[in-house]
C-alpha cells in the first residue's frame, strides 16, 4: 500500500513567498475555477476541512454498507439479490476511492480506520438507524441515495481535485442505486396491501433521519463563508434540503404515499418548502453515540477489522518476503 508521508503537505517546496501571497494565489486559483491538487500549497484550515469532510464521506460509505448488507441474504428475487449485492459493493468501492483521497492529504488508511473505530472520526448520522423490513431497503436506496446525490453533485464542483474526480464516478454509480431503490418502492407501492403498508411504515420511520441527513441549519456564518469562498462547501444545508424536498416530495406523493409531517407543503409563491424541523437535539444525541445503532455499527466494523487482522499481517509479511530474492 503506497501512502504519502504524514508531513507530505508541508514538504511542498518553499518558494520564498509570504503566507499572505500564497493564500492570495490559492484563492485566485479557486476563483479561476481551477482545482487544488495535493502538491499545491493550501492553507492548513483548508486541508483539515477537506480531509475531515472526505474522511466523513468515506466512513459514511463503509458504515452505510452495514445496514443494507443485513438485507442481502433476504433479498427476495434473483434480480433484487444481484442488484443489492452490487449496490452495497459500490458503497464499499466508494469508501476505497475516498480513503485514497484522504491519503493524498496525508492520512493513511490504517489511521482512518482506527479513528472510525475509536470514535474520533464521524460518519453520516442516518446510518445509525435500523432497517427493519425489506421496504427499508427500497427507501434507503431511493431516498438516502437521492439525498446523497444532490449533495455530491454540488461537491463535485468543489475545489479539491482528487475529491472532485472521485465524486464524478460516485455520482454516476449512485444514480443507479437510486433507480434500484425507486424500483423496489414502486413495486411495493403497486403491490399487495401488506407490501404497501410495509412501504408506508418504512417511509414514516425514515423521514426524519433523511431530513436530518443534510445537517442542522448553518448558523456559524464566518466559518461557512470561508468554506464557501474556498469552494469546500457550495450551498448551505438548508438550501440543499430545500432542493431535496422540491425534487422528491412530489415523487413520493405520486406513489400515493404520505409523509409524517402535517406542516409539509410548498409555498407556491416563494417556491419554499415548509416543514417541521427535525429534532436537532435528538440529532446531536445520536451523533454523540446514543442512537439506536451506533454501538452495533462500530461493533460490526471492529469485529471485521479484528477478524481480518491475521490476514493483513500475513499479507504484509508476504509482500516483504516477495521483495527478497530467493537465490
Amino acid at each position: 500500500m503506497s501512502v504519502l508521508p504524514l508531513n507530505y503537505y508541508s514538504t511542498v517546496e518553499d518558494d520564498g513567498r509570504s503566507e499572505e501571497e500564497k493564500l492570495l494565489a490559492f484563492e485566485a486559483k479557486i476563483n479561476r475555477g481551477e482545482k487544488i491538487e495535493p502538491t499545491d500549497w493550501m492553507p492548513e484550515r483548508y486541508r483539515k476541512q477537506v480531509m475531515r469532510m472526505v474522511q466523513n464521506h468515506g466512513n459514511s460509505e463503509i458504515v452505510g454498507a452495514l445496514p443494507e448488507r443485513e438485507w442481502i441474504p433476504h433479498a427476495p428475487t434473483f434480480k433484487r439479490k444481484l442488484a443489492l449485492t452490487a449496490k452495497v459493493q459500490d458503497e464499499v468501492g466508494h469508501a476505497q476511492l475516498l480513503y485514497r483521497v484522504v491519503e493524498t492529504l496525508g492520512k493513511p488508511r490504517e489511521v482512518i480506520i482506527e479513528e472510525l473505530l475509536n470514535g474520533t472520526a464521524k460518519y453520516s448520522n442516518v446510518f445509525n438507524y435500523a432497517p427493519e423490513t425489506w421496504a427499508d431497503v427500497g427507501v434507503i436506496a431511493w431516498l438516502i441515495d437521492a439525498a446523497a446525490i444532490i449533495r455530491q453533485l454540488l461537491l463535485r464542483e468543489g475545489s479539491y481535485g482528487p475529491y472532485s474526480r472521485a465524486l464524478k464516478r460516485i455520482c454516476y454509480e449512485e444514480s443507479f442505486h437510486l433507480k434500484h431503490g425507486y424500483d423496489i418502492c414502486v413495486t411495493l407501492a403497486l403491490g399487495t396491501s401488506t407490501q404497501r403498508e410495509m412501504l408506508q411504515d418504512a417511509l414514516n420511520r425514515w423521514w426524519e433521519p433523511i431530513l436530518g441527513f443534510f445537517g442542522p441549519p448553518d448558523n456559524d456564518s464566518v466559518h461557512t463563508s470561508e468554506l464557501m469562498r474556498w469552494r469546500v462547501k457550495l450551498k448551505t444545508n438548508d438550501a440543499i434540503r430545500q432542493e431535496f424536498l422540491d425534487q422528491y416530495v412530489p415523487k413520493i406523493w405520486e406513489l400515493g404515499l404520505t409523509l409524517p409531517d402535517p406542516k409539509l407543503c410548498k409555498d407556491e409563491q416563494t417556491g419554499v418548502w415548509h416543514y417541521t424541523e427535525p429534532d436537532w437535539d435528538e440529532f446531536k444525541r445520536v451523533i454523540q453515540g446514543h442512537g439506536p445503532c451506533n454501538a452495533k455499527r462500530i461493533a460490526v466494523r471492529r469485529m471485521a477489522h479484528e477478524d481480518g487482522e491475521w490476514v493483513r499481517r500475513a499479507l504484509a509479511a508476504a509482500e516483504h518476503n516477495e521483495s527478497i530474492p530467493v537465490h
Binding site: A65, R69, I72, P73, Q89, A304
Partner: peptide
Amino acid sequence: EWTGVAPII
C-alpha cells in the same frame, strides 16, 4: 455475506 466486512476493502 462478506460484502461490507472482509479483511481488506
